[in-house]
Simulated assay, not measured.
Amino acid sequence: MTSSDDPAGDGGVIGALEAHLLGARPALTQHDVAARAGVPVATANELWHLLGFAHVPDDEVAFTDADVRALELTNDLIALGVLSQERQDGLVRTWGRSFARLADWQVALLASVAEEMGADPTEGLLAVSDEVMPRVEELQSYVWRRHLLSAAARLLAERSSGPSAMLAVCFVDIVGYTSRSRTLSDRELVGWLESFESTVLGLTVDRGGRIIKNIGDELLIVADSADALAEVALELTRRGADPDDPFPAVRAGIAYGEVVTRLGDVFGPVVNIAARLTSVARPSSVLVDLGAYEALSGRADDDTDEHPDHDHAGGYRFRRLRRVSVKGYSRLKVWALQPA
């Protein structure tokens, strides 16, 4: 049961967090925010929704000066020509998705830390945030700037090719995820998945690649070099096949070719083919498409019988499979990849 002094029924913790994180308790309606920022209410609402926040009634006092400042900054970027309507929508959506996921993880982390300290999770959140959040915010800014530098270097290297680039694309999928996840507690499942992602991340960045995103129990990674992803995928499947290694069994599909890059994501037939190959790969195996085969072997496949089904080239062993038909692609040329 709640009271007028504690409408959220949480002992005032959320209100205190609002004041701490946003700089003040809410004192403005959406009309107040839009008027003070000098933007139409419809524009303010659109940005709010793109960020992933639910609709707020017109007369609800839910905003602070921080929201006014955010709208003013957005207006500045539009006036400077940085944010066109298309760019604005894409950028704000990306911010909303990325920060929502990051915030969920960080709040769960802080609540866990508070519990370990013997504090009530809700009250402990407030205590931990005072000490931790300024450091987290500073560290986030550092990581962001470092990634900006990496992204700028990639952009300059690919500038001549426009919005597309020649990339190797790989999906790595955990085998038996559903059955294994049923045997784990929530905490064990999170730890298992984080260990999986950390291992893939370490191998990937060491070879100049990067993780684009995770899709459930599957990771999408890319690299400029097909060799880099071949090394990653073969090492992951090797570890997953080792009964003494806690790393889960995985399967992978690699495709190579022209990929469209946008807002940190990748699109196009090459991405689709890599995903399709992963879906038909056997446990602990790596399948590659024609583009990846040619890049890895250093030879072209000309549909002749010049190369045997078991083919050694470029430091790898290739086993030609029968043509594979998957959704959207009929009779793909596919090879199973193994170390030489």
Rank of each mutant, 00 (worst) to 15 (best):
T2D: 07
G23C: 04
A24G: 12
R25A: 14
Q30R: 14
H31Y: 12
D32F: 00
V33L: 00
A37V: 07
G38L: 07
L50K: 08
R69M: 11
E72R: 15
T74L: 11
N75S: 15
D89P: 02
G90E: 10
W95A: 14
G96Y: 02
G96P: 03
G96C: 04
S98M: 06
S98T: 14
L102Q: 14
L109A: 13
A111S: 15
V113D: 09
M117Y: 15
G118C: 08
D120M: 03
T122F: 13
E123T: 15
G124N: 03
A127N: 10
V132M: 13
V132E: 04
V132N: 06
L139Y: 05
Q140A: 15
Q140M: 14
S150H: 15
A157D: 14
A157G: 13
A157S: 12
A157V: 06
E158F: 11
R159F: 13
S160D: 13
S164I: 02
S164W: 02
A165F: 04
A165R: 07
V175G: 08
T178K: 12
S181Q: 03
S185T: 13
R187P: 01
R187L: 11
E188M: 07
L193E: 00
F196H: 15
E197G: 12
V200S: 00
G202T: 12
G209K: 01
G209D: 05
E218W: 07
I221D: 00
A223E: 00
L229A: 05
A230G: 05
L234E: 10
L234M: 11
L236W: 02
T237Y: 04
R239H: 04
D242R: 04
D245M: 03
G257T: 03
P269I: 08
P269L: 08
V271G: 02
I273T: 14
S279K: 09
V280Y: 05
V280F: 04
R282D: 13
P283A: 09
L290Q: 14
L290A: 13
E294V: 02
R299D: 05
D302F: 00
D303R: 11
P308G: 11
D311K: 01
G315Q: 07
G315D: 06
Y316T: 01
R320Q: 05
Y329C: 02
L337V: 05
L337A: 04
Q338V: 09
